[in-house]
Amino acid sequence: MSVRAVVIGTSAGGVQALSHVLPALPADFPAPVLVVVHVPPRRKNALVALFANKCQLAVKEAEDKEPLAPGTIYFAPPDYHLLVETSGTIALSSDEAVNYSRPAIDVLFESAADAFGPGTVGIVMTGANYDGAQGLRAVCAAGGHGIVQTPATAEVATMPEAALAACPDAQAMRLEEIEHALEAMLAR
């Protein structure tokens, strides 16, 4: 099963962790990458500008009903959940916060698991709460690939630890290994 989407979730320390992983992705990366970072609701989304300059892939804020394109990194907008539809388009929602977060990692991961099943790669990195754990479990349960930043190497270990506890099938990796694993997976 080829990879249809890579979904990434992170919180405290996440910008730095993403700064290792996202710029390393090659320009011909053949899948869309969707990212939820917990950000304060009323802050303007600085992530797109920050990563657009660093990445070889196109970087944008996810727009409602936009078709997913390979080789593009989509950030969830502040104060909206980011989901994907089985048709391969993006959906935003203003449903209530999940794990005190909107956007929530679980919401993205569960919808990706549902839409893309075994074609989903879910990655949980540094963070200070439990968001992403249930989502990663859903990704693994759907036959997708679960990856977690090795807790000892994470700036805040809570989120990766929770993800590993909820999803024992997931592989723990350092940031550099995550980047290599993605390339290897996509080359297959």
Binding site: L83, V84, T86, S93, V107, S111
Partner: peptide, 9 residues
């Protein structure tokens, strides 16, 4: 209704 959200609900 957009399906992913309705399914979640």
């Amino acid at each position: 209704y957009a399906r992913a959200s309705i399914k979640r609900r």
